[in-house]
Amino acid sequence: MKRVIFLVMLLLLMVGCRQSQQEGEAGTAELTIELMEPAAPTMSGDTEMVVRVTDAAGTAVDDATINIKGDMTHAGMMPVLANAAGGSDGLYAVPFAWTMTGDWVVTVRATLLDGTWSEQQFDLTVSE
């Protein structure tokens, strides 16, 4: 019985240690990230994403670095990665090539010059 209690305690400790379980630890920048385009992405033509970054006061942030990671819902599928730096009026245009149709989870991270960052996820469905 003691072993079981020990194992349960160890498990809870491991869960507690996970960075992703600790609220407020993931990123420290208070930024708002909005996905302006595309609302309905398609595979055709050159595509780009437009994200808007504002700070807690609602002021546009132009000096962030934007990292975008697009994941398919199936494990093991290659993600699409894209980056951009230097926005205008808080808007960042990032070239982005969808590799297939279906449901995508797009994670946008904005990192400020001091290294603090904020992250936001968007669910999108890509059609032909």
Binding site: R18, S20, D71, T73, H74, A75, G76, V105, Q121
Partner: peptide, 22 residues
């Protein structure tokens, strides 16, 4: 089991889904 229950909810970033389905 540990990562499946406590880890990232995005399948391509979780050990449970990647090991099982790939």
């Amino acid at each position: 089991l540990f990562d499946g229950f406590t880890g990232p909810k995005l399948a391509p970033t979780n050990i449970a889904t990647v090991v099982t389905w790939v």
